[in-house]
Amino acid sequence: MKIPFAASILTIAVAAPAQAQVEAGDVLVRARAILVSPTEEAGPVTPTFPGGSVGVSDSVMPEIDFTYMLTDHIGAELILATTKHDIVGRGTLAGIDKLADTWALPPTLTLQYHFAPKGHVRPYVGAGINYTTFYSADASRSLETAIGKTEVNLEDSFGYALQAGVDIDIAPRVFLNFDVKYIDIDTTARLRTGAAINRVDVSLDPVVPSIGIGMRF
């Protein structure tokens, strides 16, 4: 039996998710799970451990972000998350393994270009700035057993951020999101043990892939 043309169109319309039709003035709110994976390069720990260096562990945490659409194609996104990382020994410090841990708070603001704001699948790219502050840094028991009571501090960082992602409709105002960022983060860690201060320069420069769900308001 032939299905009338009008009925076929209705069937397709019901089966397809309604377009979110992102436009100027909309606010997009996303909740995502992120992996912060440093691609770090670190110098020597000087002056006491010139043959030693450090590495920084990955971290998986929740994140929330807000995008305000300035025009149909251009949005401004603020990304908010905090992650905890272990600082591990390398080179002559590898035997100590974990040297310290720290929390990082890296609010990031990007300006995005959305290629297909009226589509079911909406890819975008973005670039912006990042400010990272480190807090609650603690020396490990292993480090303090090796060299004594130690205070750890990391300098804040200001750098750039790049991103690419896509929103995929699953309901009129709800969408899936896949996103990846590269964030320029450089810091100097200081380890104060009594009167001695050791320093190490670290370029963290993490890649941050994420997956989540969003709503349009």
Rank of each mutant, 00 (worst) to 15 (best):
G91F: 01
T92R: 07
T92M: 09
L93E: 00
L93A: 00
A94V: 08
G95N: 07
I96R: 00
K98F: 05
L99Y: 02
L99H: 00
A100V: 03
D101W: 01
D101V: 00
D101Y: 03
T102H: 01
A104E: 03
L105F: 08
P106E: 00
P106Q: 02
P107V: 02
P107I: 01
P107C: 04
T108Q: 01
T110L: 06
T110C: 06
T110H: 04
T110G: 04
L111A: 07
L111H: 04
Q112A: 12
Q112Y: 05
Q112C: 10
Q112L: 08
Y113S: 09
F115S: 12
P117F: 04
P117H: 07
K118N: 15
K118Q: 15
G119P: 10
V121F: 13
P123E: 12
P123Q: 14
Y124T: 04
Y124N: 04
V125A: 12
V125T: 13
I129R: 09
I129P: 04
N130Y: 07
N130A: 13
Y131W: 14
Y131P: 04
T132N: 10
T132Y: 10
T133W: 14
F134H: 07
F134D: 03
F134V: 11
Y135D: 12
S136N: 14
A137E: 09
A137R: 06
D138W: 12
A139Q: 03
S140N: 12
S140C: 12
S140R: 05
R141I: 15
S142E: 14
S142H: 14
S142K: 13
L143Y: 03
E144H: 03
A146N: 06
I147L: 07
I147M: 07
K149N: 11
